[in-house]
């Protein structure tokens, strides 16, 4: 496509050669796919800024507790203090420092989200690739099974499982399991659709002609070519998980004490605005939005980076 050639040229103009590279006036330096993607991503300013903010949030959650020594379970005598120097985020009815509570909550929300996203996308991608690659009855059966998971709303299943197992400790891992089980089918569908068209491409023919086994074709040829989608899906799943977890918490079926999460913090303080201590409602809420928003921007940037067609088209 001509437009694509144009913009590539634009790229070269807009950015100088990588540091340390000799001025190669007459040779065309080949750039790997990875470099191209990375370069494109860097040009997506909102995504880059989001990445920085997101990194800060991660630091806040995981390094913050090392620097801010107040424990998230310590009940001080400062009850309902508005944000000030000793409690930058204020305190709640138990005198618990909200800053440390938000750190702990962000930490577990992020852990839940990342684990769910990685596991569900990985499983979904392999499932979708196998289904798409073999086609026929295998495909039909595998996709109908995925449909079975999609048939029931995530929240409903999570609530029921939670209702069942809540008394048995470690509800955090149960929640992760439930969310994973319910996020993978959508990843599976997308990857299957891509594999359906990829498997008709020449390079698959070639690999087959060279005697590659099915497994090798799937893992070495098909899946790597869907990497862009996989990364985008897993990124967006992080945002999806955080919001779903918040919804579950609101309904009383999310993370349970002694574990915590941002969703649980907001839920516990849902009446705080009218109660006269609005910081308890706004601060954890803003962290949820911050994570979801930055992730959405990063996902957008990645999509643009992996799929040049859409972004480079001129109207």
């Amino acid at each position: 496509m001509p437009s694509r050639v144009n913009t590539s040229a634009g790229d070269t103009l807009g950015t100088t050669a990588a540091p340390g590279a000799k001025a190669a006036e007459f040779t065309v330096r080949a750039r790997s796919q990875r470099q191209i993607v990375f370069r494109r991503f860097r040009q997506h300013k909102a995504a880059m800024a989001s990445l920085v903010v997101f990194a800060l949030v991660v630091l806040f959650a995981f390094v913050g507790p090392l620097l801010w020594s107040t424990s998230a379970s310590f009940m001080s005598n400062d009850i309902f203090t508005a944000p000030d120097a000793s409690h930058p985020f204020g305190t709640d009815s138990n005198g618990i420092d909200l800053l440390s509570a938000v750190m702990k909550g962000t930490q577990s929300s992020l852990i839940i989200a990342v684990v769910v996203s990685v596991v569900s996308t990985a499983f979904g991608a392999i499932y979708g690739a196998v289904s798409g690659f073999y086609g026929g009855w295998t495909d039909t059966i595998m996709m109908r099974i995925a449909d079975l998971f999609l048939t029931f709303p995530i929240i409903a299943i999570a609530i029921m499982l939670d209702n069942r197992f809540q008394a048995e400790a470690s509800s955090l891992w149960l929640l992760i399991f439930v969310l994973t089980a319910l996020f993978w089918p959508s990843a599976g569908r997308v990857i299957r659709a891509q594999v359906l068209s990829l498997k008709e491409k020449e390079f698959v023919e070639a690999a087959r002609a060279l005697g590659a086994r099915d497994r090798r074709i799937i893992f070495r040829h098909l899946l790597p070519n869907t990497l862009g989608s996989i990364i985008v899906i897993s990124t967006l799943t992080v945002a999806g998980t955080i919001l779903t977890e918040t919804a579950l918490s609101f309904l009383g079926f999310g993370v349970q004490f002694p574990n915590t999460s941002l969703g649980l913090l907001v839920t516990n303080n849902q009446t705080a605005i009218e109660g006269g201590h609005p910081w308890l409602f706004y601060i954890p809420g803003i962290f949820i939005i911050l994570i979801a928003l930055t992730i959405n921007f990063i996902g957008d940037g990645l999509r643009d980076a992996f799929d040049p067609q859409q972004t480079r088209v001129r109207a």
């Binding site: 919001l243 919804a247 907001v266 939005i289 979801a292 959405n296």
Partner: peptide, 14 residues
């Protein structure tokens, strides 16, 4: 649009 995508439903509703 992204902001709306990132809002927890109940938080927004409240």
């Amino acid at each position: 649009g992204f902001l709306f995508l990132s809002l927890p439903t109940f938080w927004f509703a409240v």
